[in-house]
C-alpha cells in the first residue's frame, strides 16, 4: 500500500515534469548562461578561471537549483493537491519523500550531466571532472531538499521568491564548501575523498530529515 502510493506520487511527478520539459530546461540555461558570463566579465585568463572554476561551477549550480524551487508546490496549492495530501490520511512525510526524491532527480540530473561540459569551458580537466560530477550527484539532492523545505515554508506568500533565497542560502553553505572543496582538492592533486564522504553524510541526513520538515511546513500551510 505505502509502496504503491510512493510509486504513484513519484510517477506523477516525473510525468508532469516531462510534460513541462521546456520549464525543466530553464535552470539548465541559467546555469550555462552564468558560466558564460563569468569569463566575459573576468577576461579569458584560463589560469584565473581555472582557479575560480570549482566555486563558480558550484555557486552557479546552487543558484540554478534555487530558481527551480519557486514553482515546486505552487501548482499543487492552486489545484488543491496539498489539501488533498493533508486530508488523505496517508503519512504526509511519506508523500513528501516521494515528491522530494522525484524532484531531486528531475532538477539535479540535467545539471549534473551538463556540469563537466561547462567545467571544460573553464579549463578543468582530468580527474577533477569526475570528482565534480560525483560531488554534484551527492550535493545537488541536498540543495533540492533544503530548497523544497524553503518553498514549503514560503508557500503562498507574496514576494516569496526573495524570502526563499534569504532563508535557504545560509543553509546551502556546508554543501557549497564541501562540494567546491572536493573539486579544488582534485585539481590540486590532493585526495578529495574526505569531502565527498562528508557530502554523502549530508545526503543521508537530508534524506531522513527533509521529508519530515517539509511535511510539517505543508501541514501548517493548510491550517
Amino acid at each position: 500500500m505505502m509502496g504503491r502510493i510512493f510509486a504513484a506520487v513519484f510517477r506523477r511527478e516525473v510525468r508532469l515534469a516531462w510534460r513541462r520539459r521546456g520549464q525543466l530546461l530553464q535552470p539548465l540555461m541559467f546555469y550555462a548562461l552564468v558560466m558564460l558570463l563569468f569569463p566575459l566579465g573576468a577576461g579569458a585568463d584560463l589560469a584565473l578561471l581555472g582557479q575560480a572554476a570549482p566555486s563558480l561551477l558550484w555557486v552557479a549550480a546552487l543558484l540554478a537549483v534555487l530558481l527551480a524551487q519557486g514553482p515546486l508546490f505552487s501548482a499543487d496549492l492552486e489545484e488543491g493537491g496539498i489539501e488533498l495530501w493533508v486530508t488523505s490520511g496517508v503519512s504526509l512525510s511519506w508523500l513528501a519523500l516521494a515528491k522530494l526524491i522525484a524532484h531531486a532527480m528531475i532538477v539535479s540530473l540535467p545539471l549534473i550531466l551538463v556540469s563537466p561540459i561547462l567545467a571544460g569551458w573553464l579549463g578543468v580537466s582530468g580527474e577533477a571532472l569526475g570528482v565534480l560530477a560525483i560531488s554534484m550527484a551527492l550535493g545537488m539532492p541536498v540543495l533540492c531538499w533544503v530548497g523544497a523545505l524553503g518553498a514549503a515554508l514560503t508557500l503562498g506568500l507574496p514576494r516569496g521568491g526573495i524570502l526563499l533565497a534569504l532563508i535557504v542560502l545560509p543553509l546551502y553553505i556546508p554543501v557549497l564548501m564541501f562540494g567546491a572543496g572536493a573539486v579544488h582538492a582534485a585539481m590540486e592533486g590532493r585526495p578529495a575523498g574526505g569531502a565527498l564522504v562528508l557530502l554523502a553524510g549530508l545526503l543521508c541526513l537530508g534524506a531522513s530529515l527533509a521529508p519530515l520538515a517539509t511535511a510539517a511546513a505543508l501541514r501548517i500551510s493548510q491550517e
Binding site: V146, L149, L153, L171, A216, A217, I220
Partner: peptide
C-alpha cells in the same frame, strides 16, 4: 512556520 525554520 518560523519554528520549523528554527529547527532546520
Amino acid at each position: 512556520v518560523a519554528s520549523v525554520l528554527a529547527l532546520a
